[in-house]
């Protein structure tokens, strides 16, 4: 007896009778290797970085995220503490153990208690680092990995994301391009286990079509854009 896989392929090939197999194979291989966006909307092609950051901010706010802007990493803990205090939230957070975030010198901000690692069920605030921000729709691109665990994006009620301004790009394709294998430049990659595109805080309209924030994931999403993340 043939396997399910064989049966499915036999049925498919029945439908493809008369197809030029050699040409089909060549076409598919070329398409798989191709690295070219199909059609990128004009709004996803901002002319300069400044316009990209402004567009990102406007779209993220439209999606019910809040955005703060600071100069360097040193300013980040203060911005985070301000946000938590203003929203009456606990001054305790799980923090992504990314080396870039170490430059923020969290230990100097005594009122804010951070624990490096993944988020646990009891964590009310999670702080992570974005891989990219996409101006097109105000979307954050978050990668799984030892420095940026995925649970930080979903378990806590409050999600705070640090986004260096030079990581803001126009389109989704641009955000993911460095992570994809590319036969032209000879690079070979495999994607991280998870790439999360995040646009605003969690929401649901499943009760009578009325939108409510905070369905299962974070109730609020706060983005801190750092203009000069490499600076002092």
């Amino acid at each position: 007896m043939s396997t399910a896989r064989e049966q499915i392929f036999a049925a498919l090939r029945q439908g493809f009778r008369g197809r030029n197999e050699a040409a089909a194979k060549v076409g598919v291989d070329a398409r798989l290797a191709r690295r070219a966006p199909n059609l990128v909307p004009a709004r996803a092609k901002p002319e300069q970085k400044r316009a990209a950051v402004a567009a990102f901010t406007a779209m993220a706010e439209e999606a019910a995220a809040t955005v703060a802007r600071v100069n360097t990493m040193i300013d980040v803990p203060g911005a985070v503490a301000d946000y938590l205090r203003n929203h009456n939230l606990p001054m305790r957070a799980a923090l992504a153990p990314d080396p870039l975030l170490d430059a923020a010198r969290w230990e100097r901000r005594k009122t804010l208690e951070v624990r490096k690692g993944r988020a646990e069920a009891f964590d009310e605030v999670g702080i992570s680092l974005a891989y990219r921000g996409v101006a097109e729709t105000g979307t954050l691109v978050m990668l799984s990995g030892e420095n940026t665990p995925t649970t930080l994006n979903f378990l806590p009620e409050t999600e705070i994301v640090i986004l260096p301004a030079d990581r803001v790009v126009g389109a989704y394709e641009e955000a993911l391009a460095p992570l994809r294998s590319n036969s032209e430049d000879g690079s070979r990659h495999s994607l991280p286990r998870v790439v999360n595109f995040v646009t605003g805080p969690s929401r649901s309209a499943d009760i009578e079509q009325a939108l409510q924030l905070g369905a299962h994931g974070p109730r609020r999403l706060h983005i801190v854009i750092v203009d000069d993340a490499a600076g002092p």
């Binding site: 779209m59 439209e62 999606a63 097109e136 729709t137 105000g138 979307t139 799984s144 990995g145 495999s190 994607l191 991280p192 286990r193 998870v194 790439v195 999360n196 595109f197 995040v198 646009t199 605003g200 805080p201 969690s202 929401r203 994931g217």
Partner: peptide, 15 residues
């Protein structure tokens, strides 16, 4: 919506 809140690309198991 301009974009759904979460679009998640999953590749393989825990690394």
């Amino acid at each position: 919506q301009e974009m759904s809140v979460y679009t998640t690309v999953s590749t393989g198991r825990k690394r």
